[in-house]
Design a protein around this nucleic acid. Sequence first.
DNA 1: CGGTACATTGAGAAATTTCAAAGTTGGTGG
DNA 2: CCACCAACTTTGAAATTTCTCAATGTACCG
Lengths: 251, 251
Amino acid sequence: MLHDIDSLSAAVNAGDGVPVRQRSPCATCHLRNEHFCGALFGNGADAAPRGTSRLIAARQNIYRAGELTDGVLVVCDGWAVRFVQLPDGRRQILSLLLPGDLVSPTAILERRFTFSIQALTAVRVCAFPPAQLRARILRDPAAFELWLDAIAGALRDAERRLVDLGQRTAQQRIAALIVHAMARREERGELDDEEFAFPLSQQQIADFAGLTPVHTCRVVRSLRNDGICDIGRGVVKILDRAALSRIGSLR
Amino acid sequence: MLHDIDSLSAAVNAGDGVPVRQRSPCATCHLRNEHFCGALFGNGADAAPRGTSRLIAARQNIYRAGELTDGVLVVCDGWAVRFVQLPDGRRQILSLLLPGDLVSPTAILERRFTFSIQALTAVRVCAFPPAQLRARILRDPAAFELWLDAIAGALRDAERRLVDLGQRTAQQRIAALIVHAMARREERGELDDEEFAFPLSQQQIADFAGLTPVHTCRVVRSLRNDGICDIGRGVVKILDRAALSRIGSLR
DNA sequence: CGGTACATTGAGAAATTTCAAAGTTGGTGG
DNA sequence: CCACCAACTTTGAAATTTCTCAATGTACCG
């Protein structure tokens, strides 16, 4: 995955910061048989919705709160975050978006959101026309089921996070973030290594966990000093998997 | 609404703590023309799902995490909370449930949840068979739309709460709870009084806002001393509406 | 009348934030 | 290859918020 991101970076840089648009590259997409891209959008079905893909450089906004979306977005490659920006400039990250993630399952209902989306690495996203998707969901019970699952999953996830923020300490919340990234990584069958890419800055970890970057720094250091995990330089090394999941796993 | 709850209490007490079951009282339900109960379940449609209603006394559990639900639940009368219980006994309240609220729009998918539900006052809930609802949603695009709206609303709400817990102070979160209760009250067209029923104990306010009951007590007192609002004895008096909504309103 | 749950208070400890400054890192252009 | 810049990380010290523990006060119910 790391080299995927690297080659994406090159592509984006060649485009010189301007989003590069491309007509439905789904035919060759490595995700086409997984997640939504396989089950919902494609695989030779007669009227499979067709998407338009965009490349976004790291740190660029993929979507700004309040604007009109260009469709139902799926992250094809790279990492992004979905966040709310408060009037005083602070941010709360609502969720991490990894390859294969549907950005918002409510996008077939609304085309404006109160959250924004920012690329952490170079990112490729694919946009599908809401109307087509909606039609497909109404026509095809399997697609309907899949969509319900997606929404239910998003809701479960948001409520898990809510408990996390309401009841758990800074250390537990940061550990939970690492555990979550680890779990996502495993479920996509990537090499279960002791070290993997984790492109969040401390500021971003802070925004995720509802903390100050300074305090985040201290907690990250304590996790390192206690031999639990070493977060930094775009990667995380798992030092004590048992201790980490004891601290971080929700419930 | 207060006297509604009082008469409900009497009914529940007559039943002596044992949940009282009743076959589909929707025909005479005062909610039948509003919310889900009107648009989704009823109003003379040929195959409108039929519910079974239950009465629950204050402080009793309506549903316990992990058990099988007896259907898709709607709160008909009274106040309840949906909460997660942690292994160490602490609780996080996920949402307030008021009359007309669908308990969980994902209930047509799953029959077990990780949250529990407790009655704050005497409560009447109505349970509808998931399969019938699901069929209706697939058959009737208006019902489908309505259901999507419900889920999207739940998701928006959860994410608003997430930002609240992640970014705001104890005072702001408690004020937000009052503002929310006030808004719900207004949207159901109840008398826009300076004082209204608010049957949460300080412990429950604490569980909602992710705080300690002791700290909650101090914040509640400060809100009273600062002439903003007076929470207690099952009611809240709004003392300075402008200040309250300045402190409490999200974003 | 007693009991149970709920609310309040005080004092001290712990967690987290704030402010401010200094150290690191990686990328860019000369 | 070096210098520089910008973003990110680390550190210290003090303030603030929130929690913990423990005791006391209060209201309602049977």
